[in-house]
């Protein structure tokens, strides 16, 4: 599991607070979405988590090991794919990369070979294992980077924009992998992404950062429920729009958005529609998706 306590990073003489007193706790075997607009401090936080950046204050523990004081033990718990980085050597083959990083992780040669074979087979790269990574497509390179992150079977994996720039098929493979890692192997996955549909689909819990601070940290369902608009319904009827309703008609179906003070008032609306001869096709309470919630959170006025 990942524990972050009051993590702060202040840069330069201008004293820019890139990350400000962030505290988090990510449970074992969960997929945690770390969201925020560009410049919110996500990557800075990820790099402090990975020990690549020394925090100004605060503490990070990976599976109980303090990243600052027990770096070696903490790093043994971790695998990561970083956004913007090549992550692996393009001049080496997929196989050579896995052997190299596996040995760097301290694994025995035989164990690395066994693990590399499994990973490359599962990711559909076995036939291309001896080809240089530089000649691979973006999706294949990302798969090799993920394989490197998983070579030592770490209990914690950090994925910074894992599906960025991938096509539909590669995105699906990566998503399946993330789910499998967490559900079947109990790996703790922390991922950042701007693809909010991916986060909504995969994450058990979501944290949103804005201007270096956490503005939300809740289970995904709870977060969405908190933003559910209990007073808004979408009603679809066959044919033209009945008089007295704000409606849009497309291809013979009229969609209306109705706001009520009390959910019981919906029955009155349906009754009015029936009286006007409208044929009801569907009635649904409007559910916000993660994108709606995210935009609301990051656009809320700040205290400052």
């Amino acid at each position: 599991m990942i524990e972050i306590e009051a993590l702060t990073k202040v840069y330069g003489t201008a004293r820019v607070r890139a990350v400000d007193e962030v505290s988090l706790r990510v449970g074992a075997g969960s997929v945690f979405g770390f969201l925020g607009p560009n410049g919110a401090g996500k990557t800075t936080t990820i790099k402090m988590l990975a020990g690549l950046l020394i925090p100004t204050s605060g503490r990070v523990r990976l599976a109980g090991f303090d990243v600052a004081r027990q770096r070696s033990a903490a790093m043994a718990q971790l695998g990561a794919v970083l956004e913007g980085s090549r992550n692996v050597y393009w001049s080496l083959s997929a196989w050579q990369n896995l052997m190299y990083f596996g040995r760097l992780k301290g694994l025995r040669k035989a164990r690395v070979a066994e693990r590399a074979e499994d990973l490359l087979t599962d990711l559909g790269l076995w036939k291309r294992r001896n080809d240089k990574v530089g000649g691979f497509s973006r999706g294949m390179q990302q798969k090799v980077a993920i394989a490197v992150a998983l070579i030592s079977e770490p209990p914690i994996v950090l994925l910074d924009e894992p599906t960025l720039g991938l096509d539909v098929e590669a995105t699906r493979t990566v998503k399946q992998w993330i789910t499998e890692q967490a559900r079947e192997l109990g790996t703790t996955v922390l991922l950042t992404t701007h693809q909010l549909d991916v986060a909504q689909e995969l994450c058990d819990r979501v944290a949103v950062m804005r201007q270096g601070r956490l503005v939300a940290d809740l289970p995904t369902r709870e977060l969405l429920a908190g933003f559910r608009e209990r007073d808004r319904y979408e009603i679809r009827v066959e044919g033209a729009a009945p008089p007295g309703f704000d409606a849009v008609t497309r291809e013979g179906v009229t969609t209306m958005s109705v706001r009520v003070r009390d959910p019981r008032e919906v029955y009155d609306v349906v009754e009015r529609l029936r009286a006007q001869g409208a044929v009801l096709e569907s009635l649904t309470q409007v559910q916000p998706d993660l994108e709606d919630v995210f935009l609301t959170l990051v656009n809320e006025p700040t205290d400052a």
Binding site: L52, Y89, L104
Partner: peptide, 11 residues
């Protein structure tokens, strides 16, 4: 290329 960071993600 950023690969150096990966070498730091090891013990």
């Amino acid at each position: 290329s950023g690969v150096l960071e990966q070498t730091y993600l090891t013990p």
